[in-house]
Computed example of a mutant assay.
Amino acid sequence: MSEAEVVDPVDSAYPGNFQELFDADVDGLLDAPEKPKKVTSSDRLERAFLEVVEFRRAHGRIPSSTTREIAERKLGARLDGILANEEKIAALKRLDEFGLLEVPEAPASLDDLLAGDDLDLLGDEFGLLDVSDLPVRKAPNSPDSVAKRKKSVEFDQFEHLFKTKHAELAEGAVTLAAFRGLPTVQEGRFFVLNGIMLFVAEVGETKTMVVGGKAEPKQRLRVIFENGTESSMYRQSLSIRLHEQEGQAIVRTGVEDEEIFDADKESGHIYVLQSLSDDAQIAGIKDLYKIGFSRNSVEQRIANAANAPTYLMAPVEIVADYRTYNLKPSALEHLLHRVFAEVRLDITQIDTKGRKYDPSEWFVAPLKVINQAINMIMSGEIVDYVYDAETQQLVERG
């Protein structure tokens, strides 16, 4: 073979240029791997919203931010946060296949709002929109008195507090107890309202406002809710809602009330009893309860109920038992008689010796309202309220 015919073995094995080499790579072996795309805040926002969309697809409804189901509640709170931000709504509009981001026109009235609730979005299981049993309160002269919940921009500073408190509840270090009234609404306290834990982060300065024609001291609160919202409601407003919605306080296990101090003296028990009488005149009365006071245990007090006209000459059942401190029995009796005067039972009993007796501590009112009144008596709030038999609510005195 001549010198001109010598062939370079490399040239014979591979194409003459790199383009030919790439063109011959039909299996893509020479393709450079793509660099992973950096996840942006927009990507995270879209992924978060798509989880809400997937929940809507799977369950046929939007997630609730007030449910006890933690996973759903997180999605509901996430959607609430998106709806509160116009920029996020605009960025996610193209992904909104169910119209979750559509903001309807504001109704002209409450009736229009309820009439237009075709999907029953207002029928929440915890009754957050049910104000039927709230006390009738006169509106203050200042519009500054109204506080609405808003997204808490500093929630990351409080989130760990809620996690710690839930852990303490699980361990039994703290427990849930009945709400004890306005004096217990203090900075640093935790409460549960409609299944949602809240934290009183700040108590503002006392300001005097004219409410219903009379001056009242008011304190604004900064209340943080575990769903990532906050409110600047008045201290009295939070107390009323905790009363009405049967809210609870989070207290140390073994301590009945965190507001009890060494100098406080236990004065006895306020109790609520229900009659077990088989007398048709008594048994036929709905919501009939005895509210009384005892220095000793309630069990000792009712031991002879079947033979005592004050207990309607029949056995009774203990419905509620509140331990009280620094309370004068005479003051309690006076308050109870005044608050529930309109619905005091009017009946005459005859004791075992044939003597007539008119029991004075039996009242016809829902148990929920009675419990509310007792809590308000112990906190001192009751002085401005009376019971309205028609609405079955505690209302402010006119």
Rank of each mutant, 00 (worst) to 15 (best):
I89Q: 04
Q19W: 06
V6K: 07
G398E: 11
N194L: 13
L242W: 08
R241L: 14
P33M: 10
D31N: 09
K148M: 12
Q372F: 01
S267H: 08
A320F: 03
S2M: 04
I318T: 13
V192R: 07
L100S: 03
S330K: 11
I350V: 15
K148D: 09
L100N: 07
Q157P: 01
E202M: 07
R57T: 11
E390I: 00
G181E: 12
Q281P: 00
Y322M: 06
L335R: 14
K150Q: 03
E72C: 08
E299W: 13
V364K: 04
K88T: 04
D118Q: 06
L110M: 08
T206P: 02
I260E: 02
G28Y: 13
I318L: 07
E361L: 09
V395Q: 03
D111S: 02
I291G: 01
L345K: 05
A90M: 14
V7A: 09
D43W: 00
F22N: 01
L273Y: 09
V136Y: 00
A341V: 01
S360H: 15
I224T: 03
P15W: 12
P143F: 08
G172H: 13
N304Y: 05
A177P: 04
R397T: 06
P36D: 00
A373M: 04
A139R: 01
K353D: 06
G284K: 11
F190N: 02
A173Y: 14
Q248A: 07
H243K: 07
T253M: 06
E244C: 09
G127D: 01
A90F: 13
E54G: 11
V210R: 02
S109R: 10
A308S: 13
K37Q: 08
F190H: 03
N194V: 05
T310W: 02
R295A: 15
F155S: 00
E244L: 07
P366I: 13
A249E: 14
D11L: 10
V153M: 12
E216W: 07
K150C: 03
N194E: 10
L336F: 14
V319H: 11
L100M: 08
F261S: 10
